[in-house]
Design a protein around this nucleic acid. Structure first.
Lengths: 344, 344
DNA sequence: ATATTTTATCGAACCGTTTCGATATTAATT
DNA sequence: AATTAATATCGAAACGGTTCGATAAAATAT
């Protein structure tokens, strides 16, 4: 069919092993031979066949990309950018990404990604929280993992997370700068570490700015042990309006929640930002499209995906290297939803 | 390392070829042997190694998924669902999906997806419009293609498209039912067939309902030869407000445009839906989250992805089968943006 | 009863690489 | 000059499957 390594060997007058060495850059090859062979390779536009390579070298050249179905559908705009980043970086390693969604409450082993049942990947990237059962299973397989926007305390796993606490301090400072002090918080389930960190970040920042009374006051926050949705945002808005006198701003745990929150406020006759300021987190691509446009914390999603890929490949090449956690910096994006029109 | 077909053969007391036949379901195998072998396979949880299979059978078991970078970033919410659908269906064929974005204006052959340069896929799914150069190249490779939301007139390629014309007739009818006649249209570039069809659908439907004068009047539509964005939506809104007296409704070519349109209208002091009705198309997942919520045409994206996968696999198995175009039905989703609050 | 066809199983070649160990040459060290 | 080390190349054995005849037994047709 197509050209094989044997053809290249024959044409350049060397053995197949020599060609192989030239391609991989391993072992000793004289400069003259290298050039000679490389010229033939280029001329015939030869590329080694992946499956043959995989079989002989006992590695697949594939990376699994795992995400829970709930996360994907709830935060598609967020996670699909991470996938994109990972794919971009994958090119540098001549690696392919295999996507798989898994149910949140996994029914082992039926619900495991199929690339785990076969031996079709050299490692996996997991984004967002995922059942510990699955993580356990992958670790038992001895397969390297890189986590994105998730951590498992106590386990030695590479992970990439954004600086949630810092992000929240940026928001709180910004709001206070708008001459606002009665700041509420709407959040979701704590089984996802990011959510928890954001709430804690809110509390710490408030405390630091002398607003500790508020951030410790239960009336000022609405927290539900559920996946964050627009519904939680609207419920939170409704609730805080009832329990807080003179509510001036609502910090939402993410953009989805913030959108629900803004819509509810508006349908209750409260104007954003005139009456109440609202902020989100994540800066998903439609945050700029809401009305008013939503202030948010920008998270470099592409970079996080790329970073995860790098960490993982590093781990695959040096399995003994100690795992690390990378903290990705974030920044505030000020839009209309959090700017007071009539500053005193 | 892991179990191989030889182990299974030895344990069940047959040859490797017999095991292979049992697994593939090909050839003649007695019922008793099949059971015996299958039992061993199940017991040891054996799975053939992909790369070995690929090498021997000369097929990769991979499908390429190609999308232009511009489309992906502009309509991520739309296309990522199609990817998801394709992946869902891929499981039924024990196939993996390899994702690749390509630049709109492709610089051949450097910008070709890398799975084409290697021989790493058995076929490709292409979503949205893509450079003819690329399509040509793939056809020359003799590789089967399935198109989603795109067509190349004159070429024999399987494709899946949504019923754009019908969708627009639904919208026009709905608006007329709201006692509205001065209906404008905001759209984008015609090199994407769907865009063109939607505009034509608008004209046909208007004509049919006796509003031909309007649909043929240039003042009533704003069309730009560019990728559709929110900006086009706001420019369109601005423009139509100027050129049309008593504008009552704006049909936008898709949801993204509609969001830009609504935001601009509101910032110009026009209320939606009180003063002007607005509709979108695609029903992306945040269409329900706008304020007011956006009426749109629901397009079953997951199903389109699944359908493309089926078409493609069918083509791979029967290369001689004549290509077909599947028209996917759509339906109207009435939300707040197009319901007149004070009907006469 | 014999010839033919269908069913069942197997051995061996093959798919296109990588890599280990052997061998030959050249360079460096004593 | 002799020994050792480094460099360069190659042959052949894997890697784990599929598939093409070959062979034999069972079923069917003549």
């Amino acid at each position: 069919m197509s050209f094989t390594i044997k053809d290249i060997a024959k044409i350049s007058g060397v053995s197949t092993s020599t060609v192989s060495l030239v391609i991989s850059g391993k072992g000793y090859i004289s400069e003259s031979t290298r050039e000679k062979v490389q010229k033939v390779i280029d001329e015939y536009n030869y590329r080694p066949l992946r499956s043959a390579r995989q079989l002989a070298a006992n590695r697949t050249g594939n990376i699994g990309f795992i995400i829970s179905d709930v996360h994907l559908s709830r935060s598609e705009a967020f996670y699909s950018r991470i996938l994109l980043g990972a794919e971009l970086e994958a090119r540098n390693y001549d690696t392919y990404l295999l996507l798989s969604t898994v149910p949140v409450h996994i029914n082992a082993p039926d619900d495991f990604p199929r690339f785990l049942k076969g031996r079709d990947v050299d490692g996996v990237i997991i984004v967002g929280s995922v059942s510990p059962i699955l993580i356990d299973h992958i670790l038992k397989l001895g397969m390297p993992i890189a986590l994105v926007d998730y951590r498992v305390p106590g386990l030695e796993i590479d992970s990439i997370i954004m600086d949630n606490r810092y992000g929240l301090s940026l928001i709180v400072e910004h709001l206070v700068h708008q001459n606002v002090t009665h700041i509420g918080f709407v959040g979701g389930s704590f089984y996802h570490p990011s959510i928890k960190e954001r709430f804690e970040g809110y509390q710490t920042a408030m405390e630091r700015l002398g607003l500790g009374d508020i951030s410790r006051n239960k009336n000022y926050h609405y927290l539900v042990e559920e996946e964050t949705t627009t519904d939680i945002g609207s419920l939170g808005a409704e609730q805080l309006l009832k329990t807080v006198n003179n509510l001036q701003a609502i910090i939402c745990v993410n953009d989805t929640t913030a959108i629900g929150c803004m819509n509810k406020l508006q349908s209750l006759g409260k104007k954003v930002p005139d009456d109440i300021l609202v902020t989100g987190f994540d800066d998903v691509n439609y945050a700029a499209l809401t009305n008013p446009s939503l202030s948010s914390i920008h998270v470099p999603k592409i970079e996080m995906g790329m970073g995860a890929m790098k960490l993982l490949m590093d781990k695959i090449e040096n399995p003994d290297k100690i795992s690390q956690t990378q903290l990705i910096p974030v920044k505030l994006v000020e839009r209309m939803s959090s700017i007071r029109p009539n500053r005193e």
